[in-house]
């Protein structure tokens, strides 16, 4: 009898313990988005996915300008990140960009266009193949993706297309902040009569060829994109930073940013 009771107790304990042990299920999306299951199918297939508080997405709760919603990805103490995806569940083009941190920190800030209120999420893939997902809801009146860029209506961008403005700042920790902006309309192809036209590759390297970060922007990245990234101490030395990239029409982007 006693053995049976003990077994029963153990079973009860196991029953209660099990749900705590199990990996998060799709329906446990902390943002409670009805699109989450689709997102998981679209981006992660059979890979392991965990919601991870270390993956922080900073964005305004209510976006004042749907064409320029500021987003900062901060991966905090998460180590060994090989690739980061940023996407918005309810955008007509879901993926905003991806990036591969090299010797730069795995954080990145930029602005994106939102068509309607949506979760904005970052998913970071670590070396073990696991995806760590974090995010936040952003409310907006919308229209961000189907409006023409201001650039398409202005002759200025044609002369300045792919022109890079950039600057580096020394940080208190001895590292370097890099901000760079590229003149580009970043047209989504969703505004009537305006074909898709966006930067699709941006490689940021040290002068001696070490990769700091590769950024692969998609259509929802805002017009004239501005990226903010941080580089740890002792990576750059006195050398320049090299930027090389292109848009989907093959127009090259090139710049050197001296210290």
């Amino acid at each position: 009898m006693r053995i049976i009771r003990t077994l029963a107790n153990a079973a009860t304990l196991l029953l209660f313990a099990l749900p705590l042990q199990a990996a998060p299920q799709p329906d446990s999306d902390p943002l409670a988005s009805p699109r989450w299951v689709d997102m998981q199918r679209m981006f992660f297939r059979d890979a392991e996915v965990v919601f991870d508080d270390r993956v922080r997405v900073s964005a305004p709760t209510t976006a004042e300008d749907a064409l320029n919603v500021p987003v900062a990805i901060d991966l905090g103490s998460l180590q060994g990140v090989e690739e980061v995806l940023v996407f918005a569940d309810f955008n007509p083009i879901v993926k905003a960009l991806s990036y591969e941190p090299g010797q730069a920190r795995a954080n990145l800030a930029f602005r994106l266009k939102l068509q309607q209120s949506s979760p904005v999420r970052a998913a970071a893939r670590t070396a073990d193949g696991r995806w760590h997902v974090g995010g936040t809801w952003v409310n907006t009146t919308g229209g961000g993706c189907t409006l023409p860029s201001t650039g398409t209506g202005s002759p200025e961008w044609q002369q300045r297309l792919n022109e890079v403005s950039a600057r580096r700042w020394p940080r208190i920790d001895g590292g370097t902040r890099l901000r760079l902006q590229i003149i580009h309309p970043m047209d989504t192809g969703l505004a009537a009569g305006i074909p898709v036209f966006h930067i699709d590759t941006l490689d940021i390297d040290t002068a001696d060829g070490r990769r700091l970060m590769r950024i692969l922007p998609s259509e929802p990245v805002s017009e004239n994109p501005l990226f903010t990234l941080d580089i740890p101490p002792d990576v750059l030395g006195q050398g320049a930073i090299r930027v090389a990239g292109r848009d989907n029409n093959g127009n090259p982007i090139r710049a050197e940013i001296a210290p």
């Binding site: 900073s58 500021p70 900062a72 800030a109 700042w169 901000r179």
Partner: peptide, 11 residues
């Protein structure tokens, strides 16, 4: 001038 990102300004 200090290189702050817009999200840092909002905070």
């Amino acid at each position: 001038e200090q290189g702050l990102d817009m999200t840092e300004m909002l905070a």
